[in-house]
Design a protein around this nucleic acid. Structure first.
Lengths: 95, 95
DNA sequence: TCGTTATTTAGCTATTTAACTAAATAATAA
DNA sequence: TTATTATTTAGTTAAATAGCTAAATAACGA
């Protein structure tokens, strides 16, 4: 697990952004509107989430649509499972 | 999930401490010896991990023995599983 | 008791972080 | 082309963080 992922998740605003993206893909501006914070600030947070590969971005005309990248979450769960002595398999059938 | 947990996990030294405690319980001094860092610095890290309830500590004479607290890791895994649309159950039998 | 060992607390400093404003870039619409 | 909208980049600042040294606390052994 990259340090960038843990750093990205350590901020409440960024975790709330991930919560929003869990429901549906959103443009940068749309994400901003959910916060009492300037657009440049949110843009910075999105940059950090992108660098950690927790989100994807796609240019759609003059908009940038952000979406969740679940791949890193998978790795993340595997990492955490080591600590409770669990196999991080997707289809667990044995303890 | 408490912010303190994410903050605690965002530092590489603290994650390495958790890695060490995953193998066996250790005293504060023993933990320190694994790092190229002063004992007070490690003590501070342990305090942060304790506050996040990621570790337990127990006084044993003049030593303090630290051990992993897996409870928070469980919650942590549940949190992460929301993002990949998985039920955080312990005994998964269905996808 | 006195000295040693284990650990933490207090106080200091350099670095990182998260916010802001102003300006730049890019695409659309008139 | 010019104005407007969407988003990012640059530069600044206050607060948080992680490291250090020195000192305090606590338990042990001679």
């Amino acid at each position: 697990m990259k340090n960038a992922v843990f750093k990205a998740l350590s901020d409440p605003t960024r975790r709330k952004i991930l919560d929003l993206l869990k429901e549906r893909d959103l443009t940068a501006g749309n994400i901003s509107s959910h916060f009492n914070m300037t657009r440049p600030s949110i843009s910075q947070h999105l940059k950090i989430l992108k660098h950690a590969e927790l989100v994807h971005d796609m240019k759609k005309g003059q908009f940038v649509v952000y979406s969740l990248n679940t791949t890193v979450f998978q790795e993340f769960i595997s990492w955490a499972m080591h600590f409770i002595g669990k196999k991080p398999s997707g289809n667990m059938s044995s303890p």
